[in-house]
Design a protein around this nucleic acid. Structure first.
Lengths: 346, 346
DNA sequence: CTGAAAGCGCTTACAG
DNA sequence: CTGAAAGCGCTTACAG
């Protein structure tokens, strides 16, 4: 059986509570003789004492457990990187991270989360509605929660400043001599999908065109059905659209979309960036493994996870409850090979 | 405050232990009147009772917590997919998954794991030595543990049958008319790295050459320094080596390596599979987003995670303790565009 | 078959 | 400042 406080108490002959206080570095332990404290610490080490987290948390309203909840979404790469940041911050703050999937039954998940008396939740979902089954109970129990890669009007939400990133990409293309640029996004038709990051990016494109291109330039939006991105016939049509429009620069909603465009261009005998310049979004692995390497707008997913976690822990520990609203992480344009400099930048 | 058994007991006027038994579906609850059971269940639901997991586990030697421990390794994509499988299985079996990173201090991690009285651990590391700081204590406390993507002679280990996959790739290339094939792996020189999956794959290549090529054919191994895979000059040298050897087929240790080779070929004006056929390993996203799409050996990472988790849970619950040794998951060769069929297969 | 008690390993509020 | 007790929310072994 595992070693308990009782064992240490018996072994040292010191009162169990004093043992507890010393091992927890409780202020009261200061009043004990240094020698006594030392003896307790040594005995604990020698016997291999491991505080029972269950027992330690049982009396408290909350445990030092955090939950990372994600729905099946997007590329695993992003989720993984966000989670890395979450783990790092959670661990640094002394919390244990549990990971969950929103499956068919949110009710079961709620039961589990509440059962662990979690200190807070970080949600990685694509739409705020997905939080609905959870919010009432979380709020009732005053458990802080937040979102990553999605802003959350009512609390913690950490996102990257995608609009600024796209705007910067537009500026860069304009200054390097591009006459007509297109924004390609994944969607089935011209209606803009109601997914926050998508609308944010489109908004950035619109602002960029308005700011850096002659007045009256219409922002050209090109929807691509992502499920058909491997369909050569379909993608050829998309390519033709771009060529017909005589676009010399394409900014994509994501690196995978940029890669798909890059591939179809090659397939049809063109080459990037000669036929047109291409900018991806995300800074994912694929942007580095593509040929040519993709100029892209990189997002710091690890930081996203860290910031969200720190905010949630702050809230759980009732510190900095102000300033934990939505946070925007800057993105940066990484220059690689998929953009043709048609004229030197000013 | 959260609703407790006591609240339900008070509300219904039924003994607390009976309430506990009914809510846990304990056999003894069968002896109560159905009506009584129904009343308890309804009251629990109405009050929003959530069993306190801490309290429930405190008396027991183990909690229903599983740990997934990984070191900083490889592509996040693989780790993420394995973890998905682990979460699914853990959740199905009624366990909560905690995720940890082997950081600078294994001792801290051990303390945390033991503190949660975890039921079992799934390790995702690249070398068995990395388990060393953990095994003594885990074994002493009889906590089952296992590895994924790495075999574990002393216990649970789930891997894919990489050797068979490579062997199959060799057969495929031979039967489709390839005269000389090369195995490219990531390494700084000709010494074979002491990483299990690497040696397994090389072994598969050797066996394949021996089985399908004329006696005396030397297996040609080509090390590529992966850290330089974006270095055009370095990669050009690698490409030249392949061309000098007049190889018409290259099997790669990984999809990223295959992609790097694909890119450098394009860069130098050649095209795959015309200049030579290329086969990747992993079935990762990059194999689908490359142009041409990579023929690759796919691994079922989700299944790997699931199998390992089920075995660990079985062991924790003392079922099927036999047959939980190393398990090999079959891989499959997915035919796409990077192999040139030089002659019809028999 | 059923009920009341003891105990899990901690923490903390309360007397001395 | 220090010591002994009560209590956290469950589970389970033990009497009736």
């Amino acid at each position: 059986m595992a070693v308990t406080l009782k064992d240490i108490s018996r072994e040292t002959g010191i009162n169990l509570c004093s043992v507890s206080q010393v091992l927890n570095d409780h202020p009261r332990a200061q009043s004990l003789r240094p020698e006594t404290r030392k003896r307790i610490l040594e005995t604990a080490l020698r016997l291999g004492y491991r505080k029972n987290q269950m027992a330690a948390s049982i009396g408290k309203k909350f445990s030092n457990v955090l939950a990372f909840v994600h729905s099946d979404m997007g590329t695993v790469e992003y989720t993984g990187r966000i989670q890395s940041g979450v783990i790092e911050a959670a661990s640094r703050r002394g919390y244990t991270l549990t990971v969950h999937h929103i499956g068919d039954s949110p009710e079961n998940l709620i039961r589990k989360l509440m059962g662990w008396r979690i200190a807070g939740v970080i949600f990685h979902v694509s739409k705020l509605e997905q939080l609905e089954p959870f919010t009432a109970e979380l709020e009732r129990e005053k458990i802080p929660y937040g979102t990553v890669n999605l802003s959350n009007p009512d609390g913690v939400g950490v996102t990257t400043d995608d609009a600024a990133g796209i705007e910067e990409a537009v500026r860069y293309l304009q200054e390097s001599g591009h006459k007509k640029i297109v924004y390609a996004f994944s969607g089935k038709d011209n209606t803009i999908p109601d997914i926050e990051y998508k609308t944010r990016r489109i908004e950035g494109f619109r602002k960029g065109i308005a700011a850096y291109y002659p007045e009256g330039t219409k922002p050209f939006l090109l929807p691509i059905d992502y499920s058909k991105s491997h369909d050569r016939e379909y993608m050829t049509k998309i390519l033709k659209k771009i060529l017909q429009e005589k676009a010399d620069g394409v900014i994509c909603e994501s690196d995978v979309l940029a890669s798909a465009l890059n591939n179809i261009a090659f397939f049809k005998g063109y080459s990037i960036p000669e036929v047109f310049s291409l900018i991806g979004f995300g800074g994912s692995m694929i942007s580095e493994t593509s040929f040519p390497m993709l100029t892209t707008i990189t997002q710091d997913f690890e930081k996203m996870g860290k910031l969200a976690t720190d905010s949630i822990v702050d809230a759980a520990e009732k510190k900095n409850i102000r300033n934990i609203r939505n946070q925007l992480i800057p993105v940066s344009l990484v220059l690689r090979e998929s953009v043709k400099i048609q004229k030197e930048q000013k």
